[in-house]
């Protein structure tokens, strides 16, 4: 049972991360490689605040989101000058910088040892200490974020971001400022990724830099590509597939000696087949190039 509940928590966390990425990549058309950096930033700031200041879960999360938002706003001034591959490279560079800081700033982040004994959340007297309680918390947060994203999708903001994605010049002629709209999308996206980080850190109670590496950014992007970007259902399908499918392969009952490798081969093959037949993902309305 705990195993199933654990998967539900991971689905909720990744759902937030993928919706966050969908905002910049699916709606904005910019492929960001810095999601794991904000995810990690959220986790570390939450952990540091929770470990050093007894201000409670909400305030620790609030500080974490604020820091991520501020960093994202400053970063957006630089990276949003670029488009296409250059934007990818700029965000990739930021991802590497954050990872290096997390890995090396031993006095603050614990370096490669990471941070342990991170407190579990306590919300208005509700001690979230058991796994079922954590499922409830993470599912509620993920549902809220899904709602927020759904509202955003067809709001004037969402439509203007999509307009910028489809034709920046045409959007400008309609008095939409591409820089301003993309910057907003980037900041919101980073704040949401940071929220996922807070949930992750408070759930596993131990974080280390390897959980927020470039591989994680690529994995988040893969979920979006497999599910399909630019809408609400694609990321959801992507998360279900990318989290549950490899876990489901654990139940194939393959021989111990070759099980893991066979699972990786099956997983990889199915991803290739999937991208061949559905290049826009399960339910994508926008193809990320």
């Amino acid at each position: 049972m705990t195993y199933v509940l654990h998967q539900l928590i991971m689905i909720s966390i990744y759902l937030i991360l993928v919706y966050a990425t969908n905002l910049v990549t699916g709606l904005g058309g910019l492929m960001t490689m810095a999601q794991a950096a904000f995810y990690g930033m959220g986790a570390y700031v939450y952990a540091l605040v929770a470990l050093n200041m007894p201000v409670g879960f909400v305030a620790s999360c609030g500080i974490s989101l604020l820091v991520a938002g501020l960093v994202a706003w400053i970063l957006s001034k630089v990276v949003l000058r670029f488009r296409g591959e250059t934007f990818v490279l700029a965000t990739l560079a930021f991802q590497m910088i954050v990872f290096t800081i997390l890995d090396n700033w031993e006095g603050v982040t614990g370096g490669s040892y990471g941070l342990s004994e991170i407190p579990r959340p306590s919300l208005f007297g509700w001690e979230v200490s058991t796994v079922p309680e954590y499922v409830l918390l993470s599912v509620i947060v993920a549902a809220l974020i899904t709602g927020v994203f759904w509202v955003m999708l067809n709001s004037p903001f969402g439509l203007s971001v999509r307009a910028v994605r489809d034709n920046e010049r045409a959007a400008e002629s309609l008095r939409i400022s591409p820089q301003k709209q993309l910057s907003r999308a980037f900041v919101i996206s980073s704040v949401l990724a940071s929220l996922a980080g807070c949930l992750f850190a408070s759930y596993v109670t131990y974080i280390d830099p390897t959980s927020f590496s470039l591989t994680e950014s690529i994995f988040i992007l893969c979920i979006l590509l497999v599910g399909g970007s630019g809408n609400i259902i694609g990321p959801f399908l992507g998360v279900l597939f990318m989290i549950l499918f490899p876990e489901g392969l654990r139940f194939l009952g393959l021989p111990d000696e070759s099980a893991a490798n066979l699972r990786e081969i099956v997983y990889g093959t199915i991803l290739i087949v999937l991208m061949y037949y559905r290049p826009n993902g399960f339910k994508g309305i926008y193809s990320v190039k």
Binding site: Y3, H6, V204, T210, S211, E247
Partner: peptide, 15 residues
């Protein structure tokens, strides 16, 4: 298979 990552090791442990 814990894949030498925290995330996958937790999954494996829970299973």
């Amino acid at each position: 298979d814990g894949k030498y990552t925290v995330k996958d090791s937790i999954s494996a442990f829970n299973k």
